[in-house]
Design a protein around this nucleic acid. Sequence first.
DNA 1: CCAAAAGTGTTGGTTTTACACCCATGG
DNA 2: CCATGGGTGTAAAACCAACACTTTTGG
Lengths: 216, 216
Amino acid sequence: MSETYDPAAFPPLAVTVDLVLMTVASGDLAVLLQRRGEAPHKGVHALPGGFVGVAESLDDAAKRILADKAGLSDAWLEQLYSFGDPARDPRMRIVTIAYFALLPADELAAALPGRDDLMLAPIDAIPKLAFDHDAIVDHAVTRLRGKLDYSPIAFALLPQRFTLRALQDVHEAILGIQLNKPAFRRRMLDKGWIEGTGEREAGGAFRPAELFRVKS
Amino acid sequence: MSETYDPAAFPPLAVTVDLVLMTVASGDLAVLLQRRGEAPHKGVHALPGGFVGVAESLDDAAKRILADKAGLSDAWLEQLYSFGDPARDPRMRIVTIAYFALLPADELAAALPGRDDLMLAPIDAIPKLAFDHDAIVDHAVTRLRGKLDYSPIAFALLPQRFTLRALQDVHEAILGIQLNKPAFRRRMLDKGWIEGTGEREAGGAFRPAELFRVKS
DNA sequence: CCAAAAGTGTTGGTTTTACACCCATGG
DNA sequence: CCATGGGTGTAAAACCAACACTTTTGG
């Protein structure tokens, strides 16, 4: 920090925020991609992102980009990692702060109609992405899997009221493995994150499951 | 990513790397601080840091800054978190990518003589720091504690050959609690990270402990 | 009363913790 | 042969996973 602070002395360098917006839809963990409308990588899928404003914090930039795509909402949003390889963008030096966001499938689905550029890709069938976005998605999936059982992160993928079965489905989709029902049930209840509402699931055939909610 | 890429269009914005270099010295987890030689916060302690070069990756910048302070070495180095509040630096907009580094106490001690600006502060007695560096240090300590038992991170604080007692001392200093000896011993051996060398500690009174090393 | 899924009790195995003990060395 | 810390055996406790069973609903 011994350098001077003459603004003109700084080489052109930009900071962006890229968003790994994930959801669990029809049993699969999926990520939101946006087809690029211009060079480089025109027509190739990439993560949604944008420049950080001069008077905007990194978190605020991530929230703004999320709102652009999915109509704000109260998504889970957390900083993931920063990528700054000098060659990651062919045009100029761009450092990107990657964020990852989680949204229930229905809320995300509501934002998709009329947006031909947006697409939801299952994690096992992601096309080749622009820039280093493949690596960013890998980081996000690893982080999500790693935090799943010590953090109440999965609830961000469910509606406010949910059954334990639905919670287990989300966990299984994220981890890609089957889980034991009684063990899962007890683990979740023991963690103290959720409480029963006394209400029951409606509309199903067979015995209705109790609806739970996250404790406040 | 729909903006243009005219370099002149970018507001002055800088990217720095700040380093939380930690070690365990005489039973305490400590962090390396540098007294600032100029405004703002002149004379106040801050984390060592520097600007990211135009053709330099973030990791390379962190390595360079580490080498400036501690004579490169093979320290553990990992990206921590990025801080970009618009008001975090009064002079201009600076986004910083924080890294944390671990070094054995003796290697770090070798770099201190003759550097009046550098100081090693125990984690429980850190002076008020410049900018938002307090928050950065908090992040680093939390990360270190969290990773301690699922990652071979503690070995970066020990010499190549070490006793199990020394390893336990490092864990206790980081966590700030006492650990049970037999349980700790077995946990460490079960993880499969280390192996005995057959050699014994020299110079001590009483029974000499076996020296272990990290498996390759 | 049957099918299907919700929810629970019980068992058995694994892991972790704590305590006590034995071992090795220098003085 | 004593003091001290290194190292290990054992038993109690806690934890976890699997299975089987009971419960509840719609048809």
